[in-house]
Design a protein around this nucleic acid. Structure first.
Length: 106
DNA sequence: TTCGTGACGTGCA
DNA sequence: GTGCACGCCACGA
């Protein structure tokens, strides 16, 4: 077995997402890398999908590498994420946001 | 165990 | 810009 210094992969992911500032976004791959899981973008997505609706984690600040919301268009989650981001000042143009402008750079 | 699927990413036509 | 293939990893049928 290997030591994990107490934190599981999921906990690492939550920790990173929690650091994303208001009005900025991070990509799944970026979160994975910062959490020490290179190539674990999918794992981040899976972790997000399992979050309880009540979570206080800023999950809406995580988008895919194209600057688009990965949830199915029209789904409740998609609308919710877009609404929260716009309320933080993130502008969407044709269903897409500018990573050049809003990407979080730790 | 194999196969399909998914809140992903990158490269290329 | 759009679509597709492929790589990647975890899960469940």
């Amino acid at each position: 077995m290997k030591a994990r210094e107490g934190a599981t992969d999921e906990e690492q992911i939550w920790q990173v997402v929690r650091l994303i500032p208001r009005g900025r976004v991070a990509t799944y791959g970026q979160v994975a890398a910062l959490a020490g899981l290179p190539g674990g973008a999918r794992k981040v997505g899976r972790t997000m999908s399992r979050l309880p609706n009540r979570t206080r984690l800023p999950w809406h600040r995580v988008v895919n590498a194209s600057g688009r919301i990965s949830l199915p268009i029209g789904s409740t989650g998609h609308r919710e994420q877009k609404r929260r981001l716009e309320r933080e000042g993130v502008a969407f143009v044709k269903g897409r946001l500018s990573l050049a402008r809003f990407r979080w750079r730790p």
